[in-house]
Amino acid sequence: MQCREVRDLADSFLSEQLLVETNHEVLRHLEGCPACRAEFASLRDLRRAVRRAFINSQALRISDEFRDSLAAHVREAARHKTPRRIVRRRWAVGFAVAAILIIVAGVGQFLRTRGIDLIARDAVGDHQNCAVQFRLGEKPISLEDAAARYDPSFRLLQEMPSDDWNTPIGPVRVVDRHSCVFQGRRFAHIVLQFQGQTVSLLVTGSHGEANASINSTDRVPHLVGLASNDGFQVVSFEIPGHTVFLVGSLEEQQIRQVAQSLSGPLYSRFARG
């Protein structure tokens, strides 16, 4: 190993992240190279100095009073309040949503939106577990594979949207395209970068009722903003045979702008088949 290679591995070596074989190679080099030994010692000192500074800092230390009160607060929430409060809140939100929808759009529209809302939860879960945390149980597959095995329409998403496009509030870039599964629901998943944030474009098969009214090839879909789950904003729209979700941590208006720029072209493309 040359000095340059060894120094490139210095951070990983000191963090004990190297494979055993590589670790041995580095150690062998260090035995015979005083300059690299000095460099590694300097880096090790730096790490120790940072850790020591943090550990010694009274300003950064949690107070006993706060620790105790927080533990008591959380325990109280766990024992008496949180589970029931969450249930009540969810029911409350459900009733509120239902009431508004009944007034505004009638029972039929309510049932349709409620169906989307259920799928939206899966879409948020997929965004969180695939695009943000990379911890899906099942490995994602290519859109081409997914098109051959599950949904031929996913093939349309291999090139659409394009890798870069503009919205009125900034450019959007595609960083990944694949198909993944969350809670048994398969999505075509296009990971976007927009305003420094990760946004997921998720397309999944919709139930017949949700698309019953769609029969024109030039219709501009109606965007539906859904209640955020875990701090995520969701905007949904329907295209032939599918429901589309945009999920991210941006504000709803920003997500809506991205959705607006996609909805018409996606609708037309899926309508043509």
Binding site: A59, R61, R67, L70, A71, R75, R79, P83
Partner: peptide
């Protein structure tokens, strides 16, 4: 609820000091 708290206490509370340091 007691079971939830017991699991939470074991899994989460040990990280409180580090979490606070990072937040601070």
């Amino acid at each position: 609820d007691e079971q939830v708290w017991a699991a939470f206490e074991v899994e989460v509370l040990p990280h409180l000091g580090g979490l606070f340091r990072f937040a601070m």
